[in-house]
Design a protein around this nucleic acid. Structure first.
Lengths: 212, 212
DNA sequence: TGCGGCATCTTGACAGTGGTAAGTTGTCAG
DNA sequence: CTGACAACTTACCACTGTCAAGATGCCGCA
């Protein structure tokens, strides 16, 4: 590490983010200690404040990184699914769930209380508090499915919220653990998720079901 | 308050739980301070340790209370829905979402990191870490719907996980706020939730859609 | 009535945390 | 070579959870 042994670290910001991420993986975002992060990098406990205004700011930075990573995963999953709108939508949903499982440290930042509160007004402009890209991607996929007849012609907003809730809840239940306590689930959680998503999508294929 | 002004508080445990609940409502469970709770009750900062082994233990106690309350809400909603299995299932789902909105302090404890980790082995026996009652109730409602033909004959586990994920995700998205940023949603989030749940239930009425 | 035991509560201390202020060190333009 | 400036350190503050030891009031027993 050429830049690590000098007085000026070189890229301390990046190093802080990285070790913060592994610490979050171990103790969760609630148990994250800025001093421990600093010590892990080998730097004094006040050094992080020259790169992040706050502990919250660091978590926000990680959260935004995670959002971008998630959107990239979704984009590639959508692309890999080919041209079938239904397959693309399924790919997006599974990418969401899979991301939560494969990158629990990043995913943990999404639902952390620090991420719920908007950041400083300045930072708010640069970052998307609502996972805007993710939401737009999902919404467009729903519209495409409706256009092709793979989803009913109801309010796309309702359908999008429905699907978002589903994958979010699935990811949450999966991550939090209660799913593992179901006997059948332990065989293959991913298979169960695909089954559930397929059931949801396939079920809506033939009927509307909205009463509003 | 007759018992509050004596040296022995009378029911300090209850008082601690109550003011902890309102503090969680204000600052979230992550921002809960045991000392602040004690000060709010008008007692020294070490007093809580005679009623709770830990800060975690207090949160666990609140979480268990919330679970019981949630199950009670679900039970009454199920009862109020009458005999139609589908209406009962919808009632259960809406009760879950409504509980998260009407009792955000209790609901916050459910997904808190303190609640994710099992409590001391002794307490674990008395409390149900997985919301057992809730899950059983949902599962039975799914079985009833399948028996009456209101839900397809697929694996009830898949259906139950599907519905659980849906209401959990809906509650989470609702509570966390992103739903409010959708233009249409702000008109009536509850109506949207009912719409989504109805769409989910109604859609599954006619087809199976499982490929497993 | 008085006395001892005991749960309850208080005081005081400890380590660890986020955050700020002032000083130190290195780098780089002029 | 020198000054300015960013990066980093040291020292400190208020606050937190937690523990140990002492004070306080209640209750049963004589």
């Amino acid at each position: 590490m050429s830049a690590t042994d000098t007085y000026h670290h070189g890229d301390l910001r990046r190093a802080l983010l990285d070790t913060a991420l592994v610490l979050i993986g171990k103790k969760g975002v609630a148990g994250l200690s800025l001093r421990e992060v600093a010590a892990g990098v080998g730097v004094s406990h006040a050094a992080p404040y020259h790169h992040f205004a706050d502990k919250t700011a660091l978590i926000h930075a990680l959260g935004n990184e995670g959002m971008e990573l998630l959107d990239a995963h979704m984009a590639s999953a959508e692309k890999a699914a080919g041209d079938d709108p239904r397959a693309r939508l399924l790919g997006i949903g599974m990418a969401y769930v899979a991301f939560a499982v494969q990158h629990p440290e990043y995913y943990a930042t999404f639902s952390s209380p620090e991420m719920q509160t908007p950041p400083s007004a300045k930072e708010a402009a640069a970052s998307d508090r609502t996972p805007g890209g993710t939401w737009v991607r999902l919404f467009n996929a729903v519209l495409a499915c409706q256009a092709s007849g793979d989803l009913p012609a109801g309010d796309p907003m309702v359908l999008a919220v429905y699907l978002w809730s589903l994958v979010h809840g699935l990811a949450e239940l999966w991550r939090a653990g209660p799913l593992e306590q179901l006997p059948q689930a332990s065989e293959g959680l991913e298979a169960l998720a695909i089954q559930v998503l397929n059931a949801a999508l396939g079920a809506m294929h033939t009927t509307e079901g909205s009463q509003g």
